[in-house]
C-alpha cells in the first residue's frame, strides 16, 4: 500500500485559494458590515422615498439617522483594524445589524408607506420614536415608579425567603411549623391574592409590594432550603473536627454551599415577580409601566404601548443581567456557569 500524502489531496484546492486570499479574507471580515450598510441605506430610503400614509413628525429624522448608522456600519467594519476593540465588537455584531436593517425596512414599508398591516394597531417605527421624544417625562416617571416598586418588593421577598429557607433547612422545629404553611400557600400564584391584598392593605403600593415579595419569596425559600438540606455531611464533619461552632456551620458552611441553589431561586423569583408587578400596576397601582400600558390601551395609543413594552423588556433583561453578574462574582469558584 502506497503512502498517501495530505498535500496531494489539497493540491487541487490550493491554487484556487492562493489566487485571491486577500479578497476572501476581506469578504469574511467586512462583508457583513457592507451588507449591514446596504440594509440600513434601504431603511433610510424607505423612510424618505414614499409619502407617509399618516401624519408622523419623525419620518425625516429617522431616515437621516438610518443613513448615519449605515455609514457607521460601513466605515466601522471596513476600518475595524484601526478601531481596536470597538471595531472588533462592530464586526462581530454586523450580521445582526443586517437583520435589523432588513426588519426595519419591511416594517416601515408595511406600515407607514403602504399600510399593509392595519394601522392603529401596527404603528410605524417613527411613531415609536415620537413617543420616546414627546412623551419622555411620563415614560420616565413610569419607569421610576416600576423600578421602585419592583426593587422594594423583590429585596423584601428575597431576604425573607432566604432567611426562611436557611431556617427550614437548618432547624427541624422551624421546618415542622413552616413547611406545611409553605406547601399550602407557596404554589398559589401571587396574583390570586390581588383582590384580597388590595382591600386588606392600607395602600395599593404596599399591597403590590407584598405581592411581589410573595412571588419572589416562594422560589427563593424552596431553593435555599433544598440547597441547605443537600449540603454533604462530610463538610460539617470536617468543620466540626476543626473546632467549628454551630454559627460557623451555618454561616461558613451551609450558606456558601447552598449559594448556587439560592441564585436559581433568585432568578426564578425575579421572573415571577415581573409578572406580578405588571398585573398589579395594571389593576391597582396608578403608576408604573404596567399602568402606562393600560393607559395607552385606553386611549388607543398603540405606539405608546410598543414603546413601553420595549422599555419594559430592556429593564427586565437588565435586572437579570445584574443578578447574573452578581452571581458570577460570588460564585467564581464554580466551573462552567451559564453566560447570560
Amino acid at each position: 500500500m502506497s503512502t498517501y500524502s495530505l498535500s496531494d489531496g489539497l493540491a487541487s484546492g490550493a491554487p484556487h485559494l492562493s489566487r485571491a486570499p486577500w479578497r476572501a479574507s476581506w469578504v469574511r471580515d467586512s462583508g457583513a458590515g457592507v451588507l449591514a450598510s446596504v440594509a440600513w441605506i434601504a431603511f433610510g430610503l424607505s423612510c424618505l422615498w414614499w409619502e407617509d400614509v399618516g401624519d408622523w413628525s419623525r419620518t425625516h429624522s429617522l431616515g437621516i439617522t438610518a443613513f448615519v448608522i449605515a455609514a457607521v456600519a460601513l466605515f466601522g467594519t471596513v476600518g475595524a483594524d484601526y478601531l481596536g476593540s470597538t471595531g472588533r465588537a462592530l464586526r462581530q455584531r454586523a450580521p445582526w445589524l443586517v437583520v435589523l436593517g432588513v426588519f426595519l425596512t419591511l416594517w416601515e414599508v408595511a406600515t407607514a408607506k403602504f399600510a399593509w398591516l392595519p394601522l392603529p394597531f401596527f404603528p410605524p417605527p417613527q411613531s415609536i420614536i415620537e413617543v420616546y421624544t414627546d412623551d419622555l417625562p411620563k415614560l420616565l416617571d413610569s419607569v421610576f415608579a416600576s423600578v421602585k416598586l419592583q426593587l422594594g418588593g423583590y429585596l423584601i421577598g428575597a431576604t425573607v425567603g432566604f432567611l426562611t429557607g436557611v431556617s427550614i433547612g437548618w432547624s427541624r422545629a422551624v421546618g415542622y411549623w413552616v413547611h406545611p404553611v409553605l406547601r399550602f400557600i407557596g404554589p398559589l400564584p401571587a396574583t390570586a391574592w390581588l383582590p384580597i391584598a388590595f382591600f386588606t392593605f392600607p395602600s395599593s403600593w404596599s399591597a403590590s409590594t407584598f405581592l411581589i415579595a410573595l412571588a419572589t419569596g416562594f422560589p427563593v425559600t424552596v431553593l435555599t432550603w433544598s440547597g441547605v438540606a443537600s449540603v454533604s455531611n462530610a463538610y460539617y464533619d470536617v468543620a466540626r473536627t476543626l473546632g467549628a461552632k454551630p454559627s460557623f456551620l451555618v454561616l461558613k458552611v451551609a450558606i456558601p454551599a447552598a449559594l448556587p441553589h439560592v441564585f436559581v431561586g433568585l432568578f426564578m423569583g425575579l421572573g415571577s415577580s415581573f409578572a406580578v408587578l405588571v398585573v398589579a400596576e395594571m389593576i391597582g397601582v396608578k403608576a408604573g409601566l404596567g399602568w402606562y400600558l393600560q393607559w395607552a390601551q385606553g386611549w388607543a395609543a398603540y405606539a405608546n404601548m410598543y414603546a413601553a413594552l420595549i422599555v419594559m423588556s430592556l429593564l427586565c433583561s437588565g435586572a437579570i443581567t445584574l443578578l447574573f453578574s452578581i452571581r458570577d462574582r460570588l460564585l467564581v469558584w464554580q466551573k462552567g456557569t451559564v453566560k447570560w
Binding site: A234, Y235, V238, P256, W333, Q334
Partner: peptide
C-alpha cells in the same frame, strides 16, 4: 476524600 470546600 479531601472534602475541600469548593467555594474557598
Amino acid at each position: 476524600d479531601p472534602t475541600l470546600f469548593p467555594w474557598r
